[in-house]
């Protein structure tokens, strides 16, 4: 049987159009303009802040990479000297290396712990909200307070970690005094502080996953690990993608805990890029231009790493 198509004139009598095609076009343009104008209007506050506090300072920063001084001493044009120095300075290479090593230790650790805690909290039938608050508390603690608390944890003589080790019959560890241990201690503090945030993020994503899929998988014979591996991880892909990129951006800017706990030492073992930028820009004020060039280097590093991650994670 062939389909029968009726035209609108066959179905009912045709009415007369009120506007000519030109008038329709004109009215449509006006309508679209009104709609777009509203959108732009709402964007204005954000755009003003973006330009005033990001675009203009970045422009100034770039300008300063070609100068020395400028804060208490007069500004002097030095061409590409600062850029050349960035790649010649040993501490720059050390600080980049330390920052990357720290990221490689901290990000996987915090994600594994947070995912584990999120999975546990998701299953918790009682006391879930209490534990959520407990885990989130370190994230709410100001950096200075957190770092001071942590000094009591890692203190060589009366820190809780060493006291525990001694009780267990092991030798105490010089957590922040030993160049081999200092960056690991900083990592522990940062992981402790970050776990709450990432746990809540993963938990929110886990709660949003459809329950039926897990029921179907259980009936299909998938055990808990198989359900995690074949359902949870792929379904959380957008969240994990966001988390990896954001964690990279944030962790490459490690500063506060280093500044408070070790000030880059011992033997520059905890010198990170942002700590070095702060040192060159504000501790030795004649090196503002060098600090600016270093800041730009970090910006490039973050951009490149984030882009690589986006490329890798966006596959499929």
């Amino acid at each position: 049987m062939s389909d029968i198509t009726l035209t609108s004139t066959e179905i009912g009598a045709a009415g007369q159009l009120s506007l000519s095609p030109e008038e329709h076009k004109r009215e449509q343009r006006r309508y679209l303009l009104r709609r777009t104008a509203t959108a732009y209007l709402f964007l204005v506050p954000a755009a003003v802040f973006f330009i005033a506090f990001l675009v203009i300072p970045i422009g100034f920063l770039f300008f300063y990479t070609f100068h020395n001084g400028g804060i208490i001493s007069p500004r002097v044009y030095v061409g590409l000297d600062n850029w050349r120095n960035v790649f010649r300075d040993d501490l720059v290479i050390t600080s980049i290396k330390n920052t990357l090593v720290y990221c490689l230790m901290a990000i996987p650790s915090v994600f594994v712990i947070s995912m584990f805690l999120a999975l546990v909290l998701q299953q918790a039938t009682r006391g879930g909200s209490v534990f959520r608050s407990v885990f989130y508390l370190p994230t709410l603690t100001p950096y200075v307070v957190a770092a001071l608390i942590w000094q009591f944890v890692v203190h060589r003589d009366f820190g809780i970690l060493n006291m525990t080790l001694v009780k267990l019959g092991r030798d105490p560890v010089n957590w922040i005094g030993d160049p081999d241990m200092a960056l690991k201690s900083i990592t522990m503090l940062e992981v402790w502080r970050g776990v709450g945030f990432w746990t809540l993020l993963f938990l929110a994503a886990l709660i949003g996953l459809p329950k039926e899929l897990y029921q179907a998988a259980a009936i299909d014979g998938a055990n808990a690990w198989q359900r995690f591996r074949h359902l949870t991880i792929p379904l959380l892909r957008p969240t994990i993608f966001f988390a990896v990129v954001m964690a990279t951006i944030w962790n490459l800017q490690l500063f506060d805990s280093v500044s408070i706990m070790t000030n880059g030492g011992p033997q520059n073992s905890t010198a990170t890029v942002v700590w070095y930028i702060q040192q060159t820009t504000f501790a030795y004020t004649d090196k503002v231009g060098f600090g600016a060039a270093l800041s730009f280097t970090l910006l490039m590093l973050i951009l490149v790493l984030a882009l690589i991650e986006i490329r890798l994670l966006r596959k499929r």
């Binding site: 459809p210 039926e212 899929l213 259980a218 009936i219 379904l235």
Partner: peptide
């Protein structure tokens, strides 16, 4: 007995197909 060991299969109202 665990769901996977009961030798039953289920079709859900919203199908519960694995989206990925």
């Amino acid at each position: 007995v665990k769901p996977g060991d009961r030798n039953v299969a289920m079709v859900f109202q919203n199908y519960a197909l694995y989206p990925h």
